[in-house]
């Protein structure tokens, strides 16, 4: 474990299966924040719950380390564990979240507020992302934040690659439509700021 950068996740998992604590620590450092953010977004920005769920995921990694096939991708495996944990939570709270719904009807009013800055864009982005149904949101986060390949997302979500493609296309269309106004205004505010900087 002299240079952890050259050790693959799968090799680390192999060491973890033998009870190597340092291997676990490296894996934890690599994935803890990623899993935390994934949970954070999936749980509608509930950080406390996201922290708890992240712990649960790593507990499962320890408990089920022996079940992991070191010939397969660890990244896909850990995100599958995380996604399933989230899914189980939503299933048990079905009255709050509808997992299977693919309806993305937007309830919020599209009225434009007065201050259109980056914060506003981010706020609207959060709103729009949170309004996405579970599956679309999961696809969106795994693709645009985790930079996972379509095949990997398909494996995590246990569905065909074609479904992932159409979901991504659908999400980008919705977000492009909903955030277009904010985007234009945000860009214009940036231009104004830049011109101000030049003037100064």
């Amino acid at each position: 474990m002299t240079n952890s950068n050259y050790i693959t996740d799968e090799q680390l998992m192999s060491s973890l299966q033998k009870g190597d604590e340092s291997a676990f620590t490296i894996l934890y450092e690599r994935y803890s924040n990623r899993i935390l953010y994934f949970m954070f977004k999936m749980l509608r920005n509930d950080e406390a719950k996201a922290q708890d769920f992240t712990q649960d995921v790593f507990m499962k990694v320890i408990e089920k380390a022996d079940q992991f096939d070191t010939n397969k991708s660890f990244k896909t495996w850990i995100f599958t564990v995380a996604a399933n944990h989230c899914k189980n939570y939503f299933r048990s709270n079905k009255q709050l979240f509808d997992i299977d719904s693919s309806n993305n009807s937007l309830v919020y009013d599209d009225s434009i507020e007065e201050n259109y800055d980056q914060k506003e864009f981010k706020r609207r982005l959060d709103i729009e992302v949170n309004k996405l149904s579970y599956k679309f949101k999961e696809t969106f986060i795994l693709r645009y934040f985790e930079d996972l390949k379509l095949k990997e997302i398909a494996e995590i979500m246990d569905c065909p690659v074609g479904t992932i493609k159409s979901r991504l296309n659908h999400v980008t269309q919705i977000l492009a439509k909903k955030l277009k106004v904010y985007k234009v205004l945000f860009d214009s505010s940036q231009v104004i700021e830049k011109t101000k900087e030049y003037e100064d």
């Binding site: 934890y28 924040n33 899993i35 922290q51 712990q55 790593f58 320890i62």
Partner: peptide
């Protein structure tokens, strides 16, 4: 966002 240290300790 940063994962709490307690998560790592509990996991260990």
């Amino acid at each position: 966002l940063k994962a709490k240290d307690s998560i790592h300790l509990n996991a260990l």
